[in-house]
Design a binder for these strands. Structure first.
Lengths: 357, 357
DNA sequence: GTGAAAGCGCTAACAA
DNA sequence: TTGTTAGCGCTTTCAC
């Protein structure tokens, strides 16, 4: 098309109306006569108008406020990483007058989430990024967003029924398959592998089952009787009971590897194995949390799958900001690659963590 | 500090001067009396002034033009991916009146690079992103940038002596180590591993030696006589000769794996192994190029290390734009994580390739 | 319904 | 050496 920058003023002149009218047509605000509407639309079709977003934001009063809702980062290292992403996004967008607030709830306390939700109902932000841990309780929350036209993006855990603007996370089924493949790689012989779910019992558990299924399917497809899997749930047990269950598990001489479905579980079992001096058991777990990094460096953990919580959060805010500020639609779902961390590439990931935009 | 937005006008009033003078102090342009300078600086110290970048870009005439200089993407799949990153950056910044051009040279033709350089000398862009393939010949080019105050960022290949604004790439030595670790993982027994350099002979070869060293060091540190490595250079040979060398290599019964130091080499050797029906040889190579993806899907390639050329280019432009437009300093070096691709996580990487910002 | 005009905060040209 | 002012392109108010 024409390469020259077209302004609203140009359109107005071409259509023989005023800039005010063109603006009314462009944003369908205010009344416009059919005649004027027609003229403006015609010229609009002939040329390629792209609004100057810089000018728009400078002129328009509205300063956007985004809110990120996630579990309290001070209580959990995984969510602490997510929060780093939020903080980075905060400074990233401050230059554009886009404010990013955060609201934390207790991962194990439904009421704390409801409080946060109430806060939102009152303050009415322009966009929401949320890690929807409590399945049932977040559904009405999403209804609220929908009716009030507040765009919301999910991260970490997907709830497709909520029909968010976008979801950012990983394919958990494939994640389980990758874990199985890695296990298979380092334990090619006959073996039993354990899958351990160690999180507190909440709706999130549903999602962990997808990882479990992926892990099992991988070995089922091998159609090899040499491989068997066993699933263990360590939810809502005392520490003593947990350790007892682990001891029983380890007494099985066929056991060659353990797959942990959560990042916190990963470090717990790694510590346990270290205490028991069981270097023969291969460990595949999740995420570059402080403890996990140490366990990987000293060889207790063989592989970590990185969920990249920080980047998930960063992109979540970026998507919201682009949507509101540049009216640029985010992808419906962004499934992050399943990053494999080993002893040798660990360092490269740690270094990149502090840098990458 | 104070939370209210402070404008230049406010500073002017506080200091008892005009906005013109404040502007002159802020940008040290034009003459200012010592007295005025002092007054402005004093108030500047007391308050926390952050310029409104939106207003600045709207008002200021200067439209930035960035140029990305890289090997012709139509001749090489790896550089085609880099170019995708450039194109993405182009649309990303078009909303801010930052123009991104690209200039291609022939990877194997020094003259073509000189032509591109000449073009740059004439058009004088505001920032340069470059993949410096020809070592010696690019040094004077960087001199030119320095004397003309054109910020430049290197990607893919580092030349620290050039003192770029930033370097974006990978740690090649660590990359070799990761390759060795992966080889070791799938071939734990006694073995000989080959390292093959297959690129045309140019300065780039120096960098490939770092990968080689990393690979060798990994096994040397094992202090295990079961492992030995052999290096092969397939540079400037006819196809017949290359195949001949490969045949000789494969006739060694000890040979259990091959490490390819470049992405193009990876697909060539994979094809060769397929023709020879040598499924027993493990292959570790580079990058998610079309052919490599196919070879990995059918099992010929065991591991790929992803250099993420697309993201390297995208970030390169982003760093330049942030530097110029938001005066935000990029990191001196951004070493990407060494991403390990396997059969199981390949799909997740392919899907993410088209989406991730 | 419509057009004119006053900003948004900053830059840059101009006059004093 | 300084202050004033006219934009940048868009939004929004306010008369008509």
């Amino acid at each position: 098309m024409s390469n020259k920058k077209i302004r609203i003023k140009d359109i107005a002149e071409l259509a023989g109306v005023s800039v005010g009218t063109v603006d009314r047509v462009l944003h369908s605000r205010g009344k416009v006569s059919d005649e004027a509407l027609q003229k403006v639309q015609e010229t609009l079709e002939q040329i390629n108008y792209k609004p100057n977003l810089i000018a728009r934001t400078l002129s328009s009063r509205n300063k956007y406020r985004l809110v990120a809702i996630l579990p309290d980062p001070s209580l959990d290292d995984y969510w602490a990483q997510s929060n780093l992403g939020i903080e980075q996004a905060e400074t990233e967008w401050s230059a554009f007058d886009i404010q990013v607030d955060s609201a934390f709830f207790d991962l194990y306390n439904l009421d704390s989430f409801k409080q946060v939700a109430n806060e939102i109902y009152k303050t009415m932000p322009d966009g929401i990024l949320i890690a929807p841990i409590f399945y049932k309780e977040t559904l009405p929350f999403f209804e609220f967003c929908k009716t009030n036209n507040i765009p919301f993006i999910l991260f970490n855990t997907n709830i497709p029924e909520a029909k968010p603007l976008s979801f950012i996370g990983q394919n958990l089924y494939e994640s389980g398959r990758v874990a199985a493949e890695l296990m298979h790689l380092v334990q090619p012989g006959p073996a039993t592998f354990a899958i351990i779910h160690s999180k507190e019992d909440n709706d999130n558990a549903v999602h962990l089952l997808q990882k479990e299924k992926g892990f099992k399917d991988y070995f089922l497809e091998k159609k090899d009787k040499d491989y068997s899997t066993v699933t263990i749930k360590l939810t809502s047990l005392t520490k003593a009971k947990i350790d007892n269950r682990l001891e029983i598990l380890l007494s099985n001489p066929q056991l060659k590897g353990i797959f942990l479905s959560t990042s916190s579980g990963t470090s717990y079992v790694a510590s346990f194995l270290e205490r028991q001096k069981r270097k023969d058991i291969k460990l595949v777990g999740y995420d570059l949390l402080k403890e996990n990094i140490l366990h990987m460096q000293n060889g207790t953990i063989d592989f970590l799958i990185n969920q990249n919580p920080r980047r998930q959060a960063l992109l979540g805010i970026r998507y919201l900001a682009n949507h509101l500020f540049l009216q640029k639609a985010p992808p419906a779902t962004n499934l992050f690659p399943l990053e494999i961390i080993t002893q040798q590439n660990l360092k490269s990931y740690l270094e990149a963590m502090n840098i990458n935009f």
